[in-house]
Design a protein around this nucleic acid. Structure first.
Lengths: 232, 232
DNA sequence: ATAGGACATATTGTATACAAGAAACTTGAC
DNA sequence: GTCAAGTTTCTTGTATACAATATGTCCTAT
């Protein structure tokens, strides 16, 4: 895909706002995630600098931050290249996500307060309503909130940070899972099990339920593969 | 602490080797970890540039990488400041470490191969020998190897990466508490329990043992801290 | 015709110059 | 004497110039 393609939709917005370094990073991130670049494509400092109307320096700074999140890889004296994780990497990442969720669940089950539990149930009800309406997008939003509440209630800031970071990284891949037929209902019943384990303060069960909920296995895995293959 | 203090011991080595960007990063990391800077101290770009004999540009690059690992904090238009995590943060980090280890253990118990198990037992024997000799430094080294083997055997590259990264971050703090009386023996018996759980393929038990093994380090450290704090 | 090497080009990495913002200092008023 | 506003100085952030290295091309020799 050429640079022209992705420049057009964004350039309008860019001109309106004042372009600051953070925006450059966010935009680059967005471009990579939404697939504006081919897989192993090299990100051209000069062209991007032109595009954003800045010099190479801020672009290079953004590159480094992107590299630290794993979205791009920096090969010395070669440049930075977008890293679309392959099926294997993705499975590993989902596996790690499942473990992080399990860990949060483990702690949360012991530490969640009544108000937090109430909030969680409330969000879960919103999830349920979305399922009834078969509204995958709304479910997606509330589901995210649901999980973030669990991270928060673990009261382990560092772990929470890890979970949020990886969750964000996996966002684009997670989303496509939800459109699997019947997945909404299944996900919802898993939520119920999670909530009841947390209510009961059963940390082992909460961890297991969360791990299973997030893990990519069986049909989900197959779905992920075919979807990935379809993109390229 | 002034710049002069830390410049002297390092400047000799620097002049010998060819100074490349990676070395700058490593050195800065080392300086921060070994406490060459005061806690909230601002890292002066120009002085450091002079010190390393380079311009500000590579220094700023190193700063960004340091910021991404959490060793320093970047405040826009202010500079970068060293972040010594407080007792609370450290406890949270140890807690996260415990959970990461538990996660690795959970997977490793199911996935470890015979050769890997053999290697693990072998390293564990070396640990045991170090305990007998009451050699904390050797124990420290083999203990690290022991844990790294477990991460590796989990065959979950992303999780392994997280574990290694945090382990590295906690290194300076972990080291302190090994010199506590009786800790070596206790740690060793925990190792035995971990190995036997892994041998048996008991993922739940392996996870719990590893969590406990690391968590106790965090607690010991916490005690150590409060004790130190009481003095000053 | 192909392989290998020298040259030309392009791109990254580093240094320096410049701009913009924050801290520090001076000066003046109360 | 203290506080505040204006000015100066210092520091970060950005642009540009330069150096070093990788890549691509062309020519030659086998």
């Amino acid at each position: 895909m050429s640079y022209i393609d992705f420049m057009l939709p964004l350039s309008d917005k860019r001109i309106m706002e004042n372009r600051r370094a953070d925006h450059i990073l966010d935009d680059l991130e967005q471009m990579i995630v939404t697939g504006s670049f081919a897989n192993g494509e090299r990100l051209d400092e000069i062209r991007l600098a032109d595009h954003f109307g800045v010099s190479r320096t801020p672009i290079r700074e953004a590159f480094q931050k992107l590299a630290s999140t794993g979205l791009v890889e920096h090969r010395p004296r070669r440049g930075v290249f977008v890293v679309e994780p392959g099926p294997l990497e993705l499975v590993k990442m989902f596996e790690a996500m499942a473990e992080l969720e399990a860990s949060c669940g483990h702690l949360t089950a012991k530490r969640i307060t009544e108000p937090e539990l109430d909030a969680l149930k409330q969000v879960n009800d919103l999830c349920k309503q979305a399922v009834v309406k078969n509204d995958a997008d709304r479910y997606y939003g509330y589901n995210e909130k649901f999980h973030h509440l669990i991270y928060e209630a673990a009261k382990s800031s560092y772990l929470q940070g890890l979970a949020i970071k990886l969750q964000k990284r996996l966002k684009p891949y997670r989303r496509m899972q939800l459109h699997l037929r019947g997945r909404l209902e299944q996900s919802m019943s898993e939520h119920e099990a999670i909530v009841s384990a947390l209510s009961a303060g059963d940390s082992t069960s909460a961890a297991d339920e969360l791990r299973g909920h997030v893990a990519v296995q069986g049909e989900k895995f197959h779905h992920l593969l075919t979807h990935l293959h379809a993109k390229s």
